[in-house]
Amino acid sequence: MGRSLRSEQVAADEVAILHITQRCVRRFRLMGVDPDTKKDYSSRREWIRRRMEALASTFAIDMLAYAILSNHMHLVIRTRPDIVAQWTDEKVAMRWLRVFPGRRLEEHLAEPTENDVKTLARDREKIATIRLRLSNVSWFMRALSEPIARKANEQEGCTGRFWEGRFKSQRITDEAGLLACSMYVDLNLVRAAMAEGPDDSKHTSAYDRIGGSNGQQIDSAAFDLKPVPTAEAAAEIRDTPIDELRKKRQAEKLNPTAKRIPQDEWLAPLTFRETSEASDPEISRSGVRASDKGFLAMSLADYLNLLRWTARQEQDEAKATMPPDLQGKLSRLGIDIAMWRDLVWNFKQYFGSSSCAGTPRSMSQRAQSTGRHWLRGQAAARACFSA
């Protein structure tokens, strides 16, 4: 049975969690050190991280986990159409104009003006379409991937593909699948021998969360969502030489809001608030992410302890017993403790060909909801979960 269509994975009005994979063309190391030419393209990993951070401030999509390697990247995201529904037409218009100004980025020297925002907001039909796009995975990935490809081609003075094709997506069906997938993503650099452990796995969500918990701050890449007064924008374009204006815009991209934020502030919080209601969208107060809603019933400290324990078992081939408090958290999710490391380390082996990932029961329910009797991965996953 083939992989499910994207239209079957997520409905336009549905909050859903997805594991996304995007690879470079022919799996070349276009974000690392080229083994043939020895050219180092590692700086592009930071391009991608900052672009994700910027999009987290405009799209109604929560960034749960990510990892950027030398030839591919992983994202775990949550679509939030419920967040878009809370935004005014003006807010929707402003976000759209920041990401898709309507002209090639190099030529777009003017900032969105108050008049631009009001004009777009008055077009109710177009705004309705944009609302759907701002929580749509395909539009999010388009806004992420295309600018990176253009910038890389410009750097090398060439044309052609940077990414091998469309991204692959996989629905996460329950908390057990989400925990395993998040840790699989966070440990990707360790598995690829690019890092010793989570604490030095730069360009992963684990690295950012560790930095945030230690008080590390970064220059925010979030878009400035305040429109410029129309008269002020016109005067700037009229009175400022093009080269000077271009340099100014490039400098503003480094820190559009002139703010410093905790290193993990742009990521969705890891822990659910026990007092929050399921229907509460928890719109972000800081404006650098879609919402302040967590995604796991686990503290960040427990998550990092389990992540580090899981990483050590593969590296040292240790037979150490998992700490009792962590065992209890896995047992609650129906995960077989003895199979936990294998589930995380070989996540792709269990779920790589499946359109979704989770416990066999939740996968079965997902199959039924899409008119199927079963989904790939159900049988293999049974070995990792309690009956």
Rank of each mutant, 00 (worst) to 15 (best):
S4P: 02
E8R: 06
V10G: 06
D13M: 10
A16R: 12
L18R: 06
L18V: 14
I20C: 03
R23H: 05
R26I: 03
M31A: 13
D36L: 11
K39P: 03
S42L: 07
R44P: 10
R44K: 05
R45D: 06
E46Q: 15
R50C: 11
R50V: 11
E53Y: 09
L55K: 06
M63G: 06
A67G: 09
H72W: 04
H74N: 02
R78V: 06
P81M: 12
P81N: 11
I83Q: 03
I83H: 03
Q86S: 13
A93E: 08
L97T: 07
P101Y: 02
P101F: 01
E106K: 15
E106Y: 13
H108M: 15
E111A: 10
P112Y: 02
V117M: 09
K118L: 12
K126P: 00
I127T: 07
R131S: 12
R133V: 08
S135W: 05
S145M: 14
I148R: 09
Q155E: 13
Q155G: 04
W163F: 03
F167Q: 04
Q170D: 04
A176W: 01
C181D: 00
L187R: 01
E196Q: 13
P198A: 08
S201H: 05
S201E: 10
K202N: 15
Y207A: 15
D208H: 10
I210Y: 01
N214Q: 15
D224N: 13
D239V: 13
P241D: 14
D243H: 13
L245M: 13
R246I: 12
R246M: 12
K248F: 06
R249M: 10
R249H: 01
P256C: 12
T257P: 03
K259I: 14
R260H: 08
P262A: 07
D264A: 14
P269L: 01
R273K: 13
E277W: 11
D280Y: 07
I283M: 09
S291T: 12
K293E: 07
K293T: 08
A301P: 00
L307I: 00
L307F: 01
W309C: 00
E314H: 13
D316S: 12
D316G: 02
A320H: 04
T321N: 05
M322H: 00
P323R: 05
P323G: 05
Q327F: 00
S331T: 11
S331D: 09
S331Q: 12
R332K: 11
L333Q: 09
I335C: 01
I335R: 04
R341E: 14
D342H: 11
N346S: 14
Y350V: 11
F351N: 00
M363P: 02
Q368Y: 09
S369D: 15
T370F: 07
T370P: 03
W374T: 08
L375W: 05
A381M: 02
A383Y: 04
